[in-house]
Amino acid sequence: MIQMKIISEKEIIKLVSENINFREEIVVPVGEDASVFFPKQDCNIVATTDSMVLDTHFSSDISPFELGYIAAASNVSDLSAMGANPALALINLTIEKPSKEYIENLIQGYNKVFKKYPVSVIGGDTTYGPQNISMTLIGYTNHNNFMATSNAKVGDIIFISGPIGESFLARKNKSYHLPEIRNTLGVMLPEYANCCTDMSDGILESVNNISKKSHVGVKINIDKIPRNEELDLLISNEKITWEDIFNYGEDYELIFTVKKENAKILKNVCSNIGLDIYEIGKIIGNNEIEFYLNNKLADISNKEKFEHFKL
Rank of each mutant, 00 (worst) to 15 (best):
P118K: 13
Y140L: 07
V187Y: 00
I203T: 06
V46E: 03
E101F: 05
V30C: 12
K40R: 15
N287L: 10
K40N: 10
S74C: 13
E290V: 14
I164V: 12
I103N: 01
N268V: 02
G202I: 08
I95N: 00
K40I: 09
L185K: 04
V76T: 14
L90H: 03
I62S: 03
T241G: 05
D50G: 01
L15G: 00
N19H: 13
Q41A: 05
N287M: 11
V258E: 04
T241M: 04
Y252P: 02
Y110P: 03
H57R: 01
E253D: 09
N302C: 06
K310C: 06
L311T: 02
D201V: 02
S206W: 02
G285H: 10
K296H: 09
K172G: 06
N151W: 01
T136D: 00
K174Y: 13
K224W: 00
G31V: 10
K259Q: 10
S167R: 07
I103M: 11
F146I: 10
P64V: 02
I91F: 00
A84H: 00
D201R: 15
N144W: 03
I133Y: 04
P130T: 14
I240W: 09
I133V: 15
I235R: 14
E290N: 13
E104Y: 03
L266P: 09
K305I: 07
E307S: 12
D198M: 05
V28L: 14
M82L: 12
I240C: 08
Q41R: 14
T56P: 00
Y192Q: 04
Y292L: 14
